[in-house]
Every structure is written in C-alpha cells, then in structure tokens.
C-alpha cells in the first residue's frame, strides 16, 4: 500500500500540471497539429510561427507593459500607504485610534467584486476611466497588509523610537533607516503578494478600460482574436510568454515559497 503512494502522487501531479505542459507544447504546434488524428501532445515540427504572430497580430506587448506599469505603481503606492498607516497605528497614541483601525481593517468584510457598480460610477465621475490610476484605484488599500505590518512593527520596542526621537531623529528618518530595513523580509513578501494580486486582477481592469491601448494583459489576453477563430497556436504562445517568467520564479523559489506559507499561516 505504502509503495503505491509515490506512483499515485506522481500520476496525480502529472495530471495537475498537464495543462501547463500542453500549453507550452501547443505553442510550438504548426496549425495542422491541432486537428491531427490521433491528437498530438508534442509538435510534429516545432515552429516559432505562433510567437511571431502573437506579437505581430496583437497588441500583446502594449497590454503587458500596461500590466507591468500598473502593478509596479500600484505596489509602490499600496506599500507606502500600508507602511505609513501601520506606523501611525503602532507608534502613536491619538483619539479614536482603535475605532479608526477597526474601520480600516473591517473593509476586508466588503468583497470588492460586489462593489463594482458603485466604484465604477465613482471612477467615471472622477474621469479616471482608461487611466492607470483608475485601474489601480480600488486596489490601493490593503487592509490585510496594514494589519500584518502593524503586528510586525509591534515587535519593535517602543523605546527604540522614543530614544531615536529624543536624539533628534525625525519620524521619516526613523522609518527609512531603521524600521523599514529591519522589516525588510515581511515588506518584500507583502510587496510580491501585492504585485501578483494587481497583475492578475481581471474584472476591475475590464470595467475601467475601454480603449484597447489601455487594456491590461489579463483582459487583453481574452480578446486577442485568435481563439475565437479556433486559431489556437498564437493564443497558446501568448499565454506561454506571460506565464513562463512566473513559472521559472516559482520553480526556482519553491523552498522559500513553501516556507513562507508555513510561517504565514501557522505562525511557527
């Protein structure tokens, strides 16, 4: 029985990873391989045609750069807002502190997808449709990040900051030269999470972008115009272009990824 476990696990994991394998393989298929009988798993004659067409006949690169730009800008803003907020909630005492903290963190209870009708109206009346700011607007507040950063900042002694302030160190200097460097690990983890969340967002960017040139890659990928005509090669190539860097990162970093999950969710 126990001998069968590795075999079962391997077959099972191959089934799970099959779509990824097939996507990469099919991105090298010549057109006729898709209709070949029996079905092909590997290209008969590998071709780079699909890649050339994916780039030439669609705005994939524009979509990709829109996504990278908004995810990068969004991450920077989101981390800044979270860090400043967490800093105030950790090191200051002020009226209404607990209430305001609960108010911010409780936004977790309101699923963004159910708020799209009103948020779209807001963005439209602010004239932010088809802008990067419009795309990232609803993702800028990350209550979970603010919460986790505060938990982490709390482990830094209050006396540290008091001593620094008495010595004439400003808040901004304390933040940039001490607090942020010692919280580097948690900040990087949260930043990566932010980046992938904003980069992978689908519904909101679909709503706030009408001009093709403003589309993010997640939205653009579904409208390339290849798969509708059963012209699968370029579509698979576009997907492969998009996922390969992330796949490589995941495989290379599989140890830290697995560890970060175990510490984040179990607290050990």
């Amino acid at each position: 029985m126990r001998r069968l476990i590795p075999i079962a696990a391997t077959l099972f994991s191959l089934a799970v990873v099959f779509p990824i394998f097939y996507t990469i393989s099919a991105s090298f298929f010549p057109y006729t391989d898709f209709t070949a009988i029996p079905a092909r798993l590997l290209p008969s004659v590998p071709t780079l045609d699909n890649y050339a067409r994916a780039f030439r006949e669609s705005n994939l690169l524009v979509f990709l750069s829109n996504s990278l730009y908004s995810a990068l800008a969004g991450t920077v803003l989101r981390m800044t807002i979270s860090i400043l907020g967490a800093y105030a909630f950790t090191f200051f005492t002020f009226r209404g502190k607990n209430l305001l903290f609960v108010l911010i963190v409780a936004t977790m209870l309101l699923p963004p997808d159910a708020l799209i009708l009103e948020n779209y109206t807001t963005i439209r009346s602010l004239r932010l449709t088809d802008t990067y700011l419009g795309i990232i607007s609803t993702t800028l507040l990350a209550p979970t990040h603010l919460f986790m950063l505060r938990q982490y900042f709390k482990t830094v002694s209050q006396e540290y900051r008091e001593a620094a302030i008495i010595e004439g160190c400003s808040d901004s200097r304390f933040l940039t030269t001490l607090l942020i460097p010692i919280s580097k690990a948690v900040i990087i983890t949260l930043a990566i999470h932010s980046f992938s969340t904003i980069f992978n967002d689908y519904l909101w960017p679909l709503l706030v972008t009408n001009r093709e040139m403003m589309r993010t890659v997640q939205v653009g990928l579904t409208m390339l115009g290849f798969s509708e005509n059963l012209d699968y090669g370029p579509q698979f190539a576009a997907i492969t272009v998009l996922m390969t860097p992330i796949l490589i990162t995941f495989i290379a970093l599989h140890n830290p990824i697995q560890d970060s999950v175990s510490t984040r969710f179990t607290g050990r």
């Binding site: 990928l221 579509q235 998009l242 495989i251």
Partner: peptide, 25 residues
C-alpha cells in the same frame, strides 16, 4: 516528492485569465 509538490502548486503561477483561456481551448 519535492517534484510532486512543485507540480501541485505550479498552477498558482498561471494567472486567472490565462488558466481560463487554457481551459476554454
């Protein structure tokens, strides 16, 4: 086992619209 584990979590690296397009095709 490590290889199995990598295969199991790899779908996480594929974004929502990519996975949906893959399934669609």
């Amino acid at each position: 086992a490590t290889l199995n584990q990598i295969f199991f979590f790899l779908p996480m690296a594929v974004g929502l619209s990519s996975s949906m397009m893959i399934i669609k095709m």
